[in-house]
């Protein structure tokens, strides 16, 4: 009986202290950590069409189409199929593809989640945070380039 009462006292304590741990999404935008990985952003200006991201992608989410001179024509990414492992960002030598913190996306059909390069370029930052500053990708494991100013506009 004592145990039951102790349990009931505990829940009553929680009921009375008025604290809540849930947030009113979407009114309160949830805080995501600086390293959070969300929908991709792609910069055609930076991309050198080296296809490393396409190769490293574990489940063929990225599709790149080039012409005979290896000039890029299409960059498609199915954000509904993506598993958000961030390997494409990690492998990219020029930071052309990176994962924003934006986790909110909707579509009526699955096909609409296959983004082309224009759609990928227009993916907004989440709360205007550029996640690249907080992530310190260990480029040593990949390639020693890619420093310098980055302009995604």
């Amino acid at each position: 009986m004592i145990g039951i009462l102790k349990g009931m006292a505990t829940t009553m304590k929680h009921a009375l202290d008025g604290e809540t741990f849930t947030v009113e999404y979407p009114d309160t935008a949830p805080d995501v950590s600086p390293r959070f990985r969300g929908v991709h952003k792609f910069s055609q200006e930076r991309c050198i069409w080296c296809r490393q991201c396409e190769n490293v992608c574990p489940n063929d989410t990225i599709q790149i189409v080039t012409d005979e001179q290896r000039n890029g024509e299409q960059y498609n990414l199915h954000i509904g199929q993506c598993i958000y492992c961030r390997l494409c960002e990690e492998v990219c030598p020029v930071d052309a593809i990176l994962l924003t913190q934006n986790f909110e996306f909707t579509a009526d059909t699955k096909d609409e989640l296959a983004y082309n390069k224009e759609q990928l370029k227009n993916v907004p930052w989440y709360k205007d945070i550029d996640p690249l500053e907080s992530r310190e990708p260990d480029r040593g494991a990949w390639i020693g380039e890619g420093e310098g100013e980055i302009d995604y506009q």
Binding site: S33, R35, R86, L87, E90, D138
Partner: peptide
């Protein structure tokens, strides 16, 4: 949350790499 700070995801972390981990503690 702590793991999210460290690894960048809440559940599907992909934090380990062969021969180490991908990131140090967050700054």
């Amino acid at each position: 949350d702590i793991l999210e700070d460290l690894t960048g995801q809440r559940m599907m972390h992909n934090y380990f790499r062969l021969g180490g981990v991908v990131w140090d503690l967050p700054n």
